[in-house]
Write a protein that binds this DNA or RNA. Structure first.
Lengths: 106, 106
DNA sequence: ATGGAATACATCATATCACGAGGTATTGTG
DNA sequence: CACAATACCTCGTGATATGATGTATTCCAT
C-alpha cells in the first residue's frame, strides 16, 4: 500500500489497536498486520508521538522475565478516534470526486 | 481537514480534476475547493511531480493576454487513478478496523 | 485614473513523518 | 548450538504539504 495513503490513518489504527485492551508494541504490529503493515521503527515513532500528545499512557510490566511496555488509551485518545471518523467523511467525499464518471459535454 | 489524511489523495484529486478536460493551475484549485483545499504552492509542487512521472503533459497557451499552462492527463495518469481506486479498498478496510465496535470479553 | 482584488504563474525553507538499517537482550526451538 | 521469535530502541533519509514571498497582468469599484 502507498505510504502516503497510510498517513493519517496510522495514529487512528494504533489507538484502535489498544482501545479494547491495553497492548504492547510487538502485539500491536501483529494485530494490525491483516489491515496495515507497519515496521517497528514506525510503530515506536507513533507510540512516542501519541504519548507526547497524551492520547495514551505507558506502564512497564514484566512478562516471562521480559519487559513489556503496555499502552493504555486515554480520553483524548478516544476523542482522536471519533475525530478520525468525522474526518473520514471528507475522505469519502474526495474519493467520490475522484471516481465520479465523466459528465459528457457536447 | 488533517494534513496527513489528505496525503496520498492529492495526486489522484489533481489527476481527476484534469481527467475530463484539460485545465490549468488556478482553475484546478477552484474546482477542488469544495472537496479539498490546497494552496498554490502545494498544487504546483504536485503538478511538477506528476509531470516528472509522465502522468500529465503541459501546454502553454495565451488567454486574454495572460499565459496559462494547460495540463493534460496521459495514459499513465489514468492508470494512476485506477490504482488509487484499488488502494482505496484497503483504506476502507482500515477504516472498518478503526470503527469496529468493542467485542466484549468476559 | 487609481488602487486593490482577482487571475496566474513560480521558488524556497521548513516541519512532519514513515521507514530501513542497525543495535541490545532474552526465550523458545530444531 | 544456532537461529527464529519476542521485545525494546535510535538515527538518518527521503517524500511531501505548506506558508512566505515574489512577479506580472486584468478587472472593477470608487
Amino acid at each position: 500500500m502507498d505510504i502516503q495513503l497510510k498517513r493519517g490513518m496510522l495514529d487512528a489504527c494504533v489507538l484502535a489497536a489498544i482501545k479494547n485492551e491495553d497492548s504492547y508494541g510487538y502485539k500491536i504490529i501483529k494485530d494490525l498486520k491483516p489491515y496495515v503493515v507497519l515496521s517497528e521503527s514506525t510503530l515506536y515513532t507513533i507510540l512516542k508521538r501519541l504519548e507526547a500528545a497524551r492520547m495514551l499512557t505507558v506502564r512497564t510490566a514484566e512478562h516471562d522475565g521480559r519487559l513489556r511496555k503496555y499502552y493504555h488509551i486515554t480520553e483524548a485518545g478516544l476523542r482522536r478516534i471519533e475525530e478520525f471518523k468525522e474526518e473520514f467523511k471528507e475522505v469519502i467525499s474526495i474519493y467520490q470526486f475522484v471516481t465520479k464518471e465523466d459528465v459528457h459535454h457536447e
